[in-house]
Design a protein around this nucleic acid. Structure first.
Lengths: 187, 187
DNA sequence: TTGAAATTGTGATATTTGTCACGCAACAGA
DNA sequence: TCTGTTGCGTGACAAATATCACAATTTCAA
């Protein structure tokens, strides 16, 4: 399990065995079943999560009861309600498992210790944050420049497997389209 | 000029005079006039920019000639075509001045030197990257949960001055709405 | 000052997308 | 196996938004 984390980090910064032992000691491992919630709306958010295996989604439920998927998190992804994680407020979103999943959990305190303790890890998280920012920007561009059909095609091209792993309602609410419209587009 | 940068950084990490002198030495200052382009589509992107004063926009022009505003950058903001900045490819977007502007420029090499040289700066940029990521996520949520009118109101509430500083075509193309629709919404 | 260009509002209409309703098929749990 | 739930497609219609056209106003440079 931890090996996956090491590989993942070492794509960006190489680590000695001792360094990785230090890093690794800050994570705890957890198993979740399909449909379980890792974070519920209103929770204190103490952890961010590295997905070892499985599939998660970060969801916002609006007042009218509609679900909006802010992001999916597949293997090797980091996820949390970051706004809340960094400001220590209560979760506005929930983080749910779409498949049985194994995650590594990191508390905010340990995250800060890791960053302060080894510049390598701070660098690693900086690179990840950049990648996240660039990814979000791509998604914003997609909203600005593309209609529903084009956004669907872009998502399909980027994550073809996603459509086999989850029901089509979910990509629809990630794309900001009703499931009926998505159904018509994809047929 | 550099004082603004120092204040800005010190909101996150305190710096000694020597430290700031070291940081400051990596930036060069530039003036641009309204309508000038700091980055043009196709350029090599060598710098990222800290806006001392003025107003910039990051724009993507699609094949059909439509303009899409990926972001505005006001005083105290950092901006660049980050994807390109970090991957050393050619600009897909352009960065234009909406007012006479003063910016501080940082090359990628110097950015890396700064990060490697002082953990404080790496930490500073990490915090900035998080804030950027959270901001993008907010905008994505806005696309997912809100119609044109609500998005307009959110933007207006967040940056009321923007609507006095630029023509209404621009907020429209930031919101992903035609200028006609925006005009009808705001009247 | 003056004339050209840019900005803005608004009507008419087309297009895209959402909503509601329904039936059928697949699937999971008792 | 039975049965309720969920997922999926699709028709009919409604709502949101885009597009095109035009006139009034403002801005700005010669």
């Amino acid at each position: 399990m931890q090996e996956k984390l090491r590989e993942h980090i070492e794509k960006i910064v190489p680590l000695t065995d001792e360094e990785f032992a230090f890093v690794s000691a800050h994570f705890t491992i957890r198993n979740y079943k399909k449909r379980e919630s890792i974070i519920c709306k209103g929770d204190q958010v103490n952890h961010c999560y590295f997905v070892v295996s499985g599939l998660l989604m970060l969801v916002y439920d609006d007042e009218s009861g509609k679900q909006h998927i802010v992001s999916f998190a597949m293997e090797d992804w980091w996820e949390s309600d970051y706004l809340v994680y960094h400001t220590n407020t209560k979760a506005t979103m929930s983080l749910q498992c779409l498949e049985d999943s194994i995650v590594l959990c990191l508390t905010l305190q340990d995250y800060q210790k890791l960053c302060a303790g080894t510049q390598k890890m701070e660098h690693f998280f900086l690179e990840k944050a950049h990648a996240g920012h660039i990814g979000s920007q791509r998604r914003i561009m997609s909203f600005l420049t593309s209609n529903a059909k084009e956004r669907y095609e872009q998502l399909f091209q980027r994550y073809p497997s996603l459509f086999q792993r989850v029901s089509k309602t979910l990509p629809a609410s990630y794309l900001g389209v009703s499931r009926e419209t998505l159904s018509r587009l994809s047929s």
